[in-house]
Computed example of a mutant assay.
Amino acid sequence: MSSPTASPHSAAVSHLDVASKDEPVALGRLLEVSTAILRQAVDLVDNSLTSDEQLTTHSNYIPGSTIGKHLRHARDHFALLLDVISEPAPHVLNYDKRSRNTPMETSRTAARETLNDCIARLQEVVPQARMGQPITLHAVTPYPQVMGTTFGRELWFAGLHAIHHWSMVRVIAGELGIQMEESFGFAPSTLVHMESKAKI
Protein backbone atom coordinates (compact mmCIF):
# COMPACT_ATOMS: atom_id res chain seq x y z
CA MET A 1 0.00 0.00 0.00
CA SER A 2 1.46 3.31 -1.05
CA SER A 3 1.86 6.05 1.48
CA PRO A 4 -0.39 9.08 1.06
CA THR A 5 1.14 12.09 -0.66
CA ALA A 6 0.72 15.45 1.03
CA SER A 7 -1.28 17.91 -1.02
CA PRO A 8 0.22 21.32 -1.89
CA HIS A 9 -2.38 22.87 0.42
CA SER A 10 -1.43 20.71 3.40
CA ALA A 11 2.25 21.39 2.73
CA ALA A 12 1.58 25.12 2.70
CA VAL A 13 -0.40 24.89 5.95
CA SER A 14 2.43 22.88 7.50
CA HIS A 15 4.95 25.52 6.40
CA LEU A 16 2.81 28.29 7.89
CA ASP A 17 2.51 26.33 11.13
CA VAL A 18 6.29 26.00 11.38
CA ALA A 19 6.73 29.67 10.48
CA SER A 20 4.29 30.74 13.20
CA LYS A 21 6.21 28.69 15.79
CA ASP A 22 9.52 30.19 14.66
CA GLU A 23 8.21 33.76 14.54
CA PRO A 24 8.82 34.64 18.22
CA VAL A 25 12.40 33.42 17.85
CA ALA A 26 12.94 35.43 14.66
CA LEU A 27 11.41 38.57 16.20
CA GLY A 28 13.50 38.05 19.32
CA ARG A 29 16.65 37.96 17.25
CA LEU A 30 15.70 41.12 15.36
CA LEU A 31 14.98 42.80 18.69
CA GLU A 32 18.35 41.66 20.06
CA VAL A 33 20.25 43.02 17.05
CA SER A 34 18.30 46.31 16.96
CA THR A 35 18.91 46.84 20.67
CA ALA A 36 22.63 46.08 20.33
CA ILE A 37 22.98 48.54 17.45
CA LEU A 38 21.28 51.36 19.37
CA ARG A 39 23.31 50.57 22.49
CA GLN A 40 26.45 51.12 20.42
CA ALA A 41 25.26 54.70 19.97
CA VAL A 42 24.56 55.08 23.70
CA ASP A 43 28.05 53.78 24.43
CA LEU A 44 29.49 56.27 21.94
CA VAL A 45 27.73 59.16 23.67
CA ASP A 46 28.63 57.97 27.18
CA ASN A 47 32.18 56.71 26.72
CA SER A 48 33.70 58.13 23.52
CA LEU A 49 32.40 61.68 23.17
CA THR A 50 33.68 64.20 25.68
CA SER A 51 31.77 67.35 24.67
CA ASP A 52 28.49 68.43 23.08
CA GLU A 53 30.50 70.27 20.43
CA GLN A 54 31.66 66.93 19.00
CA LEU A 55 28.04 66.20 18.06
CA THR A 56 27.86 69.31 15.90
CA THR A 57 31.31 69.44 14.27
CA HIS A 58 30.96 69.19 10.49
CA SER A 59 32.91 66.54 8.63
CA ASN A 60 35.54 67.54 6.09
CA TYR A 61 35.01 64.28 4.19
CA ILE A 62 31.20 63.91 4.31
CA PRO A 63 29.75 67.37 3.51
CA GLY A 64 26.91 68.46 5.77
CA SER A 65 27.43 65.54 8.15
CA THR A 66 27.77 65.67 11.91
CA ILE A 67 27.75 62.88 14.46
CA GLY A 68 24.54 64.29 15.96
CA LYS A 69 22.73 64.28 12.61
CA HIS A 70 23.66 60.68 11.92
CA LEU A 71 22.53 59.55 15.37
CA ARG A 72 19.21 61.34 15.00
CA HIS A 73 18.59 60.14 11.44
CA ALA A 74 19.23 56.48 12.27
CA ARG A 75 17.12 56.61 15.43
CA ASP A 76 14.28 58.24 13.46
CA HIS A 77 13.87 55.14 11.29
CA PHE A 78 13.28 52.95 14.34
CA ALA A 79 10.94 55.53 15.91
CA LEU A 80 8.84 56.00 12.77
CA LEU A 81 8.44 52.23 12.35
CA LEU A 82 7.44 51.79 16.00
CA ASP A 83 4.93 54.67 15.74
CA VAL A 84 3.29 53.09 12.69
CA ILE A 85 3.08 49.54 14.04
CA SER A 86 1.68 50.80 17.37
CA GLU A 87 -1.36 52.27 15.63
CA PRO A 88 -4.34 50.26 14.34
CA ALA A 89 -4.12 48.92 10.76
CA PRO A 90 -3.73 49.87 7.99
CA HIS A 91 -0.06 50.61 8.67
CA VAL A 92 1.41 53.26 6.38
CA LEU A 93 5.12 54.09 6.74
CA ASN A 94 7.06 57.02 5.32
CA TYR A 95 10.70 57.40 6.41
CA ASP A 96 10.84 60.89 4.92
CA LYS A 97 8.53 62.24 7.65
CA ARG A 98 11.24 62.85 10.20
CA SER A 99 12.27 65.66 12.49
CA ARG A 100 15.38 67.77 12.11
CA ASN A 101 17.40 70.02 14.42
CA THR A 102 16.30 68.07 17.49
CA PRO A 103 18.03 68.34 20.90
CA MET A 104 19.75 64.97 20.44
CA GLU A 105 21.78 66.46 17.59
CA THR A 106 23.44 68.99 19.90
CA SER A 107 23.30 67.54 23.42
CA ARG A 108 24.87 64.31 24.69
CA THR A 109 22.32 64.19 27.50
CA ALA A 110 19.42 64.49 25.06
CA ALA A 111 21.01 61.96 22.69
CA ARG A 112 21.42 59.42 25.51
CA GLU A 113 17.83 59.90 26.69
CA THR A 114 16.35 59.70 23.19
CA LEU A 115 18.32 56.58 22.26
CA ASN A 116 17.44 54.86 25.54
CA ASP A 117 13.78 55.77 25.06
CA CYS A 118 13.91 54.17 21.62
CA ILE A 119 15.44 51.00 23.06
CA ALA A 120 12.69 50.87 25.71
CA ARG A 121 10.01 51.23 23.03
CA LEU A 122 11.58 48.43 21.00
CA GLN A 123 11.45 46.17 24.07
CA GLU A 124 7.78 47.05 24.57
CA VAL A 125 6.48 47.02 20.99
CA VAL A 126 8.40 44.31 19.12
CA PRO A 127 7.24 41.33 21.24
CA GLN A 128 3.62 42.37 20.60
CA ALA A 129 4.07 42.62 16.82
CA ARG A 130 4.16 40.01 14.07
CA MET A 131 6.98 39.51 11.55
CA GLY A 132 4.57 39.44 8.64
CA GLN A 133 2.40 42.36 9.72
CA PRO A 134 1.64 44.17 6.44
CA ILE A 135 2.91 47.72 5.98
CA THR A 136 2.48 50.04 3.01
CA LEU A 137 5.72 51.93 2.44
CA HIS A 138 5.72 55.35 0.78
CA ALA A 139 9.16 56.29 -0.53
CA VAL A 140 10.84 58.83 -2.78
CA THR A 141 13.57 57.29 -4.95
CA PRO A 142 13.54 60.25 -6.19
CA TYR A 143 10.21 59.30 -7.79
CA PRO A 144 7.25 58.65 -5.46
CA GLN A 145 6.85 54.92 -4.89
CA VAL A 146 4.30 52.88 -2.96
CA MET A 147 5.09 49.26 -2.12
CA GLY A 148 4.10 46.51 0.25
CA THR A 149 6.42 45.35 3.01
CA THR A 150 6.26 43.80 6.48
CA PHE A 151 7.18 44.78 10.02
CA GLY A 152 9.94 42.18 10.19
CA ARG A 153 11.54 43.35 6.98
CA GLU A 154 11.46 47.00 8.06
CA LEU A 155 12.88 46.27 11.51
CA TRP A 156 15.76 44.42 9.81
CA PHE A 157 16.22 47.41 7.47
CA ALA A 158 16.24 49.92 10.34
CA GLY A 159 19.16 48.08 11.92
CA LEU A 160 21.05 47.79 8.64
CA HIS A 161 20.39 51.47 7.95
CA ALA A 162 21.74 52.44 11.38
CA ILE A 163 24.93 50.43 10.84
CA HIS A 164 25.46 52.35 7.57
CA HIS A 165 25.23 55.64 9.47
CA TRP A 166 27.40 54.38 12.33
CA SER A 167 30.15 53.75 9.77
CA MET A 168 29.94 57.42 8.76
CA VAL A 169 30.00 58.42 12.43
CA ARG A 170 33.23 56.42 12.68
CA VAL A 171 34.73 58.51 9.85
CA ILE A 172 33.81 61.79 11.57
CA ALA A 173 35.05 60.51 14.92
CA GLY A 174 38.36 59.67 13.25
CA GLU A 175 38.61 63.23 11.98
CA LEU A 176 38.12 64.46 15.55
CA GLY A 177 40.61 62.02 17.03
CA ILE A 178 37.91 60.26 19.04
CA GLN A 179 38.75 56.75 20.23
CA MET A 180 35.89 54.33 19.61
CA GLU A 181 34.89 50.81 20.61
CA GLU A 182 36.24 48.43 17.93
CA SER A 183 32.90 46.95 16.86
CA PHE A 184 31.18 50.32 16.34
CA GLY A 185 29.92 50.66 12.77
CA PHE A 186 30.26 46.99 11.83
CA ALA A 187 27.21 44.93 10.88
CA PRO A 188 26.44 42.01 13.23
CA SER A 189 27.11 39.56 10.39
CA THR A 190 30.58 41.07 9.93
CA LEU A 191 31.31 40.76 13.63
CA VAL A 192 30.24 37.10 13.59
CA HIS A 193 32.46 36.47 10.56
CA MET A 194 35.43 38.22 12.17
CA GLU A 195 34.95 36.22 15.36
CA SER A 196 34.81 32.91 13.46
CA LYS A 197 38.03 33.75 11.58
CA ALA A 198 39.76 34.65 14.83
CA LYS A 199 39.01 31.15 16.18
CA ILE A 200 40.71 29.40 13.23
Rank of each mutant, 00 (worst) to 15 (best):
V13M: 09
D96G: 06
A158S: 05
S107R: 03
E124S: 08
L44I: 07
L49D: 10
S167E: 13
L191F: 11
D83F: 03
S14K: 13
S2L: 14
M180K: 02
L80G: 02
R153N: 11
A74P: 01
T109V: 14
L191H: 03
I135Q: 03
H164W: 06
R108M: 13
A187P: 13
L27V: 04
H165K: 10
N101R: 12
P8C: 03
L55D: 01
D83V: 04
V169W: 01
K69Q: 09
T106N: 09
P103D: 11
T149R: 00
H77D: 00
V171Y: 03
R153I: 00
S3V: 10
R98Y: 05
D22V: 12
F157T: 00
R72S: 10
V140L: 15
L160T: 12
S10P: 06
M194S: 07
L31S: 01
E181P: 01
D46Y: 06
Y95V: 04
V171C: 04
D17R: 14
E182S: 07
L115C: 07
A111W: 08
C118S: 02
G177K: 04
S51T: 15
R100E: 13
H91I: 01
T109M: 06
A41V: 11
T66I: 02
P8G: 06
I67C: 10
Q40M: 03
V125E: 08
T50D: 11
R75E: 07
V146A: 00
V126G: 00
D17S: 15
P144K: 12
N60F: 10
G174N: 13
H138D: 07
Y143R: 14
E124F: 01
A198Q: 13
A36H: 10
G64H: 10
L176W: 08
E182Y: 00
D52V: 14
S65N: 08
G64D: 11
A6C: 02
I200Q: 15
D83H: 06
V140Y: 10
P90I: 07
